[in-house]
């Protein structure tokens, strides 16, 4: 058990470090995912330490995993479009609404 708790802490710190030091958008997203996994790991260790085995954190982590993939998908969609702006190829129809842009 102690090994997994230590693992959770180390993963949390690695995620934290990556999130704050990485410049690349995708790398920051990966760091965030590592960070979240660390929190999930803590929850599952807590479930394992309880007697009898506690199903509630398991359900929480399952919910969390689905949420994490959803947010990752949205983040990736944004990253791709932001990266596209810096690439030379033209973008189809992206006129901003008159009066709505704010510089």
């Amino acid at each position: 058990m102690l090994i997994y708790l230590a693992l959770a802490s180390v993963l949390f710190v690695i995620g934290l470090h990556g999130l704050f030091t990485a410049r690349n958008l995708l790398r920051r997203l990966l760091s965030l995912n590592v960070l979240t996994t660390a929190v999930f790991l803590l929850l599952v260790v807590i479930a394992r330490k309880a007697t009898p085995l506690d199903p509630v954190p398991h359900a929480m982590v399952l919910t969390g995993i689905v949420i994490a993939v959803s947010t990752t998908a949205v983040a990736l969609a944004l990253v791709e479009r932001i990266a596209l702006r810096h690439s030379p190829e033209p973008e189809p129809s992206a006129s901003t609404r008159p009066g709505e842009e704010d510089a």
């Binding site: 999130l19 958008l25 920051r28 997203l29 965030l32 947010t71 949205v74 983040a75 944004l78 990253v79 479009r81 932001i82 702006r85 992206a94 901003t96 609404r97 709505e100 842009e101 704010d102």
Partner: peptide, 16 residues
């Protein structure tokens, strides 16, 4: 992000 290009960068910062 609906309001277009500039907003997408802001949306990303907010999301992260």
């Amino acid at each position: 992000a609906l309001s277009g290009r500039l907003a997408q960068a802001a949306a990303w910062r907010y999301l992260l």
